[in-house]
């Protein structure tokens, strides 16, 4: 009886997880610029993954309940994966958004942009020029040869 209830809960968790991950995919296609796409890409994938991994944890707990020690490995390693996703997903989104703003992507249809003008452009422009010059000189040498 208990294992049947577990089975149903696992299927419900899988359905919720797949639905939100699908929503993240549609959001990536429908939103206009990088920041709004990151909104869809972080929240929905994290929430969906919580439920997908939750179903795996429940499966492991059920195996453990039935005296199969392998179930404990499955459950605990899935929890570790869940913690890793919870920590790295927002951090990665933050890094992407920061890099996008530093390389001059303006938020689409922005009402207000407090961050604009606070970053000094000098630090960016210097390293960009050097490799371009090197490439030009190298192509000239090759032509000369």
């Amino acid at each position: 009886m208990i294992s049947e209830i577990f089975e149903i809960v696992i299927y419900i968790f899988l359905a919720i997880g797949v639905f939100f991950n699908l929503l993240a995919g549609i959001g990536l296609l429908r939103f206009p610029d990088v920041y709004t796409r990151l909104h869809a890409g972080t929240k929905c994938t994290t929430f969906g993954s919580i439920f997908l991994i939750g179903s795996v944890i429940l499966l492991g707990l059920r195996m453990w309940w039935n005296n199969d020690a392998d179930g404990s490995i499955l459950a605990i390693h899935s929890i570790v994966a869940l913690v890793a996703i919870l920590v790295t997903n927002p951090t990665g989104a933050h890094a992407l958004a920061r890099a996008a703003h530093r390389s001059g992507v303006e938020p689409y249809g922005a009402v207000v942009d407090d961050l604009k003008g606070t970053i000094k452009p000098k630090a960016e422009s210097k390293p960009k020029k050097k490799p371009v010059k090197k490439k030009k000189t190298s192509t000239k040498k090759e032509e000369g040869k």
Binding site: F20, L23, I26, G27, R30, F31, P32, Y35, T36, H39, A40, K43, C44, T46, F47, H101, P107, Y108, G109, A110, V111, V112, D113, D114, L115, K116
Partner: peptide, 24 residues
């Protein structure tokens, strides 16, 4: 908060209503 966020994003994905900005 996270569950709310997901329904919020679902609503905006379907309707396309956004009013974005960067605030401090």
């Amino acid at each position: 908060g996270m569950a709310k966020a997901n329904f919020d994003v679902a609503y905006r994905v379907i309707t396309g209503k956004i009013n974005p900005g960067i605030v401090r």
